[in-house]
């Protein structure tokens, strides 16, 4: 065929950058336009902060455990858990809507791009992480008015890499679930079987030594829960410290989830094929 315009094989680095920018830009625009999604993402943690935490501050005493150096209010204790919760919801929501809602078409539009699939999925993931970080900072801004703030202003900066890493981990998990699990078609299923167990079996609402006192096996479950490590990584980073175990755990979980999601979306090996028709 002589009259085809064949471009040279492959893409330049600049074109990879354009593609990544395009995916993030679209996600950002959609985020700005979907005010309901933004508001509900913000209201959820605020309800926990202002109602749940206010009710429980008398019941649950928090002893002094790192990174805290004084007694802290219960609201202060759960703030990092709520930041991680925002990212958990965001990761599950964006990935599941991607496949099951009318977004299915958008996922196909993305995957029909000639860029390598691992790159497209990673770009999509990074876009979701960027949005989740915006949501967390909006939450932190409101929390600041209630004097829930890091020990110094630097905490707002040092928490950023932790949020990026935990957002990646939770987004990759959502992407993996979206490709694998046919039964979790509605969000209620995901709430019951993923979000609630991950959230409650973690250090988000209570320190793990309290869990250990009441149930050693639950403690072990909490200790391996990826969400616990996301919360602790964020908690320490917010206090300008590094929790090395959590850093290692979150990095490892993020890598495993991401690789698994890319494999699951690989047309040759992918599980997506099981969905049929």
């Amino acid at each position: 065929m002589s009259n085809i315009e064949t471009s040279p094989e492959g893409f330049s680095l600049r074109q990879y950058a354009i593609c990544l920018w395009g995916v993030v830009w679209r996600e950002g625009l959609r985020f700005l336009h979907q005010r309901e999604r933004f508001v509900s993402a913000l209201v959820r943690p605020l309800v926990w902060l202002f109602i749940f935490a206010a009710g429980f501050r008398q019941v649950l005493g928090i002893s002094i455990i790192p990174p805290y150096e004084t007694y802290v209010l219960y609201e202060v204790y759960i703030a990092p858990g709520l930041m991680a919760m925002i990212q958990l919801f965001n990761g599950m929501q964006s990935s599941l809507s991607m496949v099951y809602d009318r977004e299915m078409g958008n996922m196909r539009t993305l995957l029909v791009s000639p860029f390598p699939r691992w790159f497209l999925l990673s770009a999509k993931l990074l876009a979701g992480v960027a949005v989740s970080i915006l949501q967390v900072y909006a939450f932190l801004l409101i929390a600041w008015f209630w004097e829930i703030e890091p020990p110094t202003r630097w905490g707002y900066l040092t928490v950023l890499p932790a949020l990026a890493l935990s957002g990646l981990m939770l987004g990759a998990l959502g992407m993996l679930l979206s490709s694998l699990i046919k039964q979790l078609e509605n969000f209620a299923g995901v709430m019951n079987f993923v979000i609630f167990p991950m959230f409650f079996a973690s250090s988000a609402l209570y320190p793990l030594w309290r869990v250990q006192e009441s149930s050693p096996w639950l403690y072990r479950l909490c200790a391996i829960n990826p969400f616990t490590h996301a919360v602790e990584l964020i908690r320490f980073a917010y206090y300008q410290k590094i929790e090395w175990t959590s850093l290692a755990a979150v990095s490892a979980y993020a890598s495993v989830f991401l690789v698994a999601a890319i494999v699951a979306y690989d047309p040759a090996r992918g599980m997506i094929i099981r969905k049929g028709g």
């Binding site: 074109q15 354009i18 395009g22 679209r26 539009t109 791009s113």
Partner: peptide, 12 residues
């Protein structure tokens, strides 16, 4: 904006 997004998916 829809068109710009799609073009980016093709490196444009």
């Amino acid at each position: 904006q829809n068109l710009v997004y799609h073009a980016a998916l093709h490196g444009l």
